[in-house]
Simulated assay, not measured.
Amino acid sequence: MRAFALLATLGVALAGCQTRPVAPPAPPPEQAYPGVTPSTFHMPGGSGCSGEIERFQAVMDNDLATGHTTKGVHARVSAEIATARSTCSAGNEGGAMGQLHATKTKFGYPG
């Protein structure tokens, strides 16, 4: 009988030592909602064709990061943006804006 009481006491004591599963840490905010732009995203400033070009490049980079476009499309659009950037740098504001507008239209972006 004493052995039974001792085993019962040990059983109760050991029951308190059971471990509970630990929940994994929460993912960083930018991974918490796949496909959603993180709160840290900011549009570049600037005016004229250079500002417009940098803002569109930022949109494309964000679309790639959030899975809204593929690497191949991003590369093609970025190449066209680079052409518009060169035109803008050469002082041809109208030509650069026209190239940027054509790229946006071609790939389904507004404006």
Rank of each mutant, 00 (worst) to 15 (best):
G111C: 08
A84M: 10
Y33F: 13
M43A: 15
G108Q: 15
H68M: 06
R76I: 12
F41T: 06
G46W: 00
N62Y: 01
D61I: 01
A15K: 03
G67Y: 02
P29V: 04
Q18H: 06
A32R: 13
M1N: 13
E30N: 06
R20K: 15
S50N: 11
V73I: 15
L7K: 04
P38T: 05
A26W: 03
T69L: 05
A3Q: 14
T37G: 02
G11R: 08
R20Q: 15
V73M: 08
S86V: 09
V59M: 03
T70H: 05
A15N: 10
Q18L: 13
A84R: 00
H74D: 11
P25W: 00
T9F: 04
T83N: 10
G46F: 03
R55H: 06
G35Q: 06
A65K: 04
R2I: 15
P24S: 11
F107M: 07
C17L: 15
I81T: 12
M1D: 14
S86P: 00
Q57S: 11
N92M: 01
P44A: 03
D63G: 07
R76M: 08
F4H: 11
E52S: 13
A96Y: 01
F41Q: 04
G72C: 02
A32S: 09
P21A: 12
E52Q: 14
A26F: 10
I81R: 00
A32F: 01
E52H: 08
G16L: 10
N92S: 06
A84W: 01
